[in-house]
């Protein structure tokens, strides 16, 4: 067992884990932050995407011990109080989900995309950048619309990136 310590959504947390514990297991089971999902468990589907030190990664393909000492943001850490993050708001407004299972990963991927590439995103770029996230319900159309709308809103408010 190893003690891991990291900052998750602004709070310092620590826990005792086996070295083989996946980061997503630590987040869901130890921290009880169940917004981050496990889908394929083979790093294809992207429902486990979180941000580690400001970059989107797949938490099902990372060990909790690897993340010790890092800054983690999960879907639960995006909103400010009751105020949803612009990407969350846009997913709601544009109905960027059906069953909702892929949504946390989609939102985290979208925020990372806007952080990396800036808010001036065209549709083709958004579609291409979503190659690490699968949705089996929507056909992606409203997800793309939501990300475009959020990016446009964030272009006006660049400080709201994360």
């Amino acid at each position: 067992m190893t003690t891991v310590t990291m900052t998750v959504n602004g709070k310092t947390v620590s826990g005792e884990v086996e070295d083989r514990t996946l980061l997503v297991e630590f987040i869901r089971e130890n921290l009880e932050l169940t917004g981050t999902h496990v889908g394929c468990d083979t790093s294809q589907c992207g429902v486990c995407v979180i941000h580690m030190d400001g970059k989107a990664i797949k938490s099902c393909t990372t060990l909790a011990v690897q993340a010790s000492g890092s800054q983690i943001t999960t879907i639960e850490g995006l909103a400010t109080g009751d105020e949803l993050h612009p990407v969350q708001k846009a997913f709601k407004e544009h109905h960027g989900l059906q069953c909702g299972f892929c949504t946390p990963g989609m939102v985290m991927a979208a925020v990372d995309m806007i952080n990396r590439l800036g808010p001036n995103l065209d549709e083709a770029t958004i579609r291409h950048e979503l190659e690490g996230n699968l949705c089996r319900c929507t056909g992606y159309h409203n997800i793309v619309k939501a990300i475009k709308a959020a990016a446009d809103e964030m272009a006006a408010l660049p400080q709201a990136a994360e």
Partner: peptide, 9 residues
């Protein structure tokens, strides 16, 4: 290579 998340690791 891979996808954006894989490329970060």
């Amino acid at each position: 290579i891979g996808d954006p998340h894989v490329r970060h690791m």
